[in-house]
C-alpha cells in the first residue's frame, strides 16, 4: 500500500537573494513559514511543484517539504527545515532578524 500523503509546503530559494521562500495560497511567495500554504492533496502538490519550477527567473530548487500543522499553520517537521525557516544558530543573521 502506498504511504499516505503527509502535509507539505512548497519551498525554494529566491533567485536574487538566495533566501528560503515558501509558496502562499495566493500563488505568491513568502519568507515566513507560518504564512505558507499547507498542501494536503498529493496531485495538487505535484502540480504546484511543476508550476513553481517553471518560474525560472524567480526561484531556484523548488521542492516539497514535510510539515507539522499546529493551529492551522505550518511548522517544520525536520530539523533541517527548522534551520531553513529560522536561519543559522551562531548569529542572528538570517531570518531571526525578521521573524
Amino acid at each position: 500500500m502506498p504511504k499516505p500523503f503527509t502535509p507539505k509546503v512548497l519551498t525554494a530559494n529566491a533567485l536574487l537573494e538566495g533566501d528560503v521562500i515558501y509558496r502562499t495560497a495566493a500563488a505568491g511567495w513568502t519568507r515566513d513559514l507560518s504564512q505558507a500554504e499547507i498542501l494536503t492533496d498529493e496531485a495538487d502538490a505535484e502540480l504546484q511543484l511543476i508550476e513553481a519550477s517553471a518560474e525560472v527567473a524567480t526561484v531556484v530548487g523548488a521542492y516539497l517539504a514535510d510539515v507539522k500543522v499546529a493551529d492551522g499553520k505550518a511548522q517544520p517537521a525536520h530539523f533541517r527545515e527548522a534551520f531553513r525557516a529560522k536561519g543559522p544558530s551562531n548569529y542572528a543573521h538570517g531570518k531571526q532578524e525578521q521573524f
Binding site: N13, E17, G18, D19, V20, F83, G87, G94, K95
Partner: peptide, 10 residues
C-alpha cells in the same frame, strides 16, 4: 566561479 547556493543564501 566559486558561487554556491547554500541553505539560506548564496
Amino acid at each position: 566561479n566559486g558561487l554556491y547556493l547554500q541553505l539560506h543564501a548564496y
